[in-house]
Design a protein around this nucleic acid. Structure first.
Lengths: 340, 340
DNA sequence: TGTTAGCACTCGTCATTAGTGAGTGCTAAA
DNA sequence: TTTAGCACTCACTAATGACGAGTGCTAACA
């Protein structure tokens, strides 16, 4: 168990290192207001803290740097609540003022705010699409042979895709087809579209319209597109600001890790309710060895959950980040409340 | 005027430097097959070339490096035609195989291909929206109080925006309103939407529907959104691969330059027909001092013109880039042919 | 018994120095 | 006109030493 004094020293070391990114020496600790004992005493305590694995030396006569275990302890036990500045609170609140936003816009904006306020990289994972349902299907003819299929979901998400209209098909046929599709598909979860199209719609269309085959296959291609688990990333280049990423190779490998959408999505999904931190090696990817990932969940009124995340060096302003993500995820949850 | 021999030497120097990014010495030039004279002779010629400003030394006893004037001459007079690999040609062709694509998708894809094949950063400027016309307006109600306005243009561009539905407004009112808007606004260029909405539609709506005021203002906000000159950027992080951008500060300032959409759009717009190169200082931005920007125009069937561009270090594989952009812009023009 | 002053020691950083090699310019001979 | 030869330049590297921030240990002190 750690003594009060050791806790204090550990706290000072981590706070200081987070601020300066420089190893912290006993003398500089002794100078702090809150510290009443001498540097020699601190050295002794630091030796103990090191033995316990909370801090490390970068070389035999350097100051101390928090270890991952140290950060873990700090996050779990030493986190002092951080008071956000009025400016920050206003920025966030104003962003959600505009009540009428479709899902994408809310998320996009949130990612932007988060990365701007933190100078880290923000990653937001939309909720599972399992429950997102088709609201309406529209078709807008562009020319004789082409049209745009537009798909609107109940979250206000709009997807569109151009497709070919078979030469023999009339506008009226197209309209009839759309009507059939709408009457049958409204309220169907997106992930079930494909199945439903085959099981019911195909036969139905055959009965009602000519030239359905070709048009059907085009439309199907347009509708049953990949609905990829979408990641919204903000402030990708913020990584370059951090002194720990002076090494371009590190940056490159980190970028290529982030860009693997599926892997990142899995990682974010794995977080539980509330705010979580993965520190350094706790992350599954090699490129994220020196990074921490803070995740927070937000809700959609029904039981769906999405995740917002912040990626930065292990030397992160954890307390400010916690406050920010707390506020932001609450705002998001509020905004989505009642959408279902 | 340059002699044959000087031309040869200049060509070898630039070709070599483009490949290796290292200053080129007289000895290494003398070793080339095509070069039959000694390194001493080459040194004399190089001194002349330097005096004329085509090449430079990085320090008093270094090999030579092409100057901007050198690159300019190289691009204007020494460019050997580059034969693209089959793989490259296939990659490009296949990307345009899928005949049915809306404008955005074509451009997005082109930017992706260009940056992937070149390892530089690609920037594509869409054509002026002046001529893009409204094809259809659709409104999909989401709930009692909210709906999505969807705007489709004749290029297949889809824009959408959620908006509030006034409490007193019925679905039928909304439908009536949309019908009026559609009948009056179809074929209207996007840039004139705003004007038209005020001059004609406002009065018209007043006559036909109740509760028009509030709905009108919401709709207007949704429709007459900013239609920013959109830049499509591909391979932003490719910049990090280039040895000339080992300096993070340079990268940062370059990024912030690229992100100024309006300035970049103006720059791209200023290019003329065909393929153009701006080398180093010829670019207006400080951050692009060490960069070259290759621009090529593509056409839209009518007289509209868009621009594709490649941003890399002045040490660029100009000949390959020329071939690539030539092929790509032709494919784009072909794809858009007949859209109008 | 816990705390602290003092001191020897470690090691990264920075500036200096010298050696090496790639490259140049100049001169004189072919 | 071309080229061999040579002196010279300068970036790069490794070695060296001074400096200082920091440590661990010991002995004295409260």
């Amino acid at each position: 168990m750690l003594t009060e004094r050791q806790l204090l020293i550990l706290q000072v070391i981590i706070d200081d290192f987070i601020l300066t990114a420089q190893p912290v020496g006993s003398r500089s600790i002794a100078k702090k207001e809150a510290v009443t004992f001498s540097s020699a005493t601190i050295r002794n305590e630091m030796a103990d803290l090191e033995e316990m694995g909370f801090i490390e030396k970068t070389h035999s006569s350097s100051g101390r740097v928090p270890s991952e275990k140290g950060y873990r302890f700090y996050v779990d036990h030493l986190l002092s609540p951080f008071r956000l500045s009025d400016q920050e609170i206003i920025t966030i609140r104003d962003a959600f003022n505009d009540k009428m936003m479709e899902f994408e816009r809310v998320v996009q904006k949130s990612a932007g705010i988060l990365s701007d306020l933190t100078n880290y990289t923000s990653i937001i994972l939309g909720p599972e699409v399992f429950e997102t349902k088709l609201k309406q299907l529209q078709i807008v003819p562009l020319s004789e042979q082409s049209a745009i299929a537009i798909l609107v979901t109940d979250t206000g998400h709009v997807e569109h895709r151009a497709f070919n209209v078979p030469v023999e098909m009339k506008g009226a046929d197209l309209e009839k087809m759309v009507n059939i599709l709408n009457s049958r598909l409204q309220g169907v979860p997106l992930v079930k579209l494909h199945e439903k199209l085959y099981s019911e719609i195909h036969d139905l269309l055959r009965k009602h319209t000519d030239q359905h085959e070709e048009a059907f296959s085009y439309l199907r291609a347009a509708l049953v597109d990949d609905h990829p688990t979408k990641l919204y990333i903000g402030g990708k280049t913020n990584i370059l600001m951090q002194p720990e990423f002076r090494d371009l190779d590190k940056v490159r490998s980190l970028y290529s890790t982030i860009e693997q959408e599926n892997a990142m999505a899995d990682l974010l999904r794995s977080g539980q309710e509330g705010i979580q931190v993965k520190i350094g090696q706790e992350n599954p990817f090699d490129a994220m060895q020196n990074c921490s990932l803070i995740t927070a969940s937000y809700h959609l009124g029904n039981d769906q959950v999405g995740t917002i995340a912040l990626l930065g060096p292990t030397r992160m302003e954890y307390n400010r980040m916690f406050s920010l993500m707390n506020v932001l995820s609450k705002h998001m949850t509020n905004t989505f409340r009642g959408w279902y």
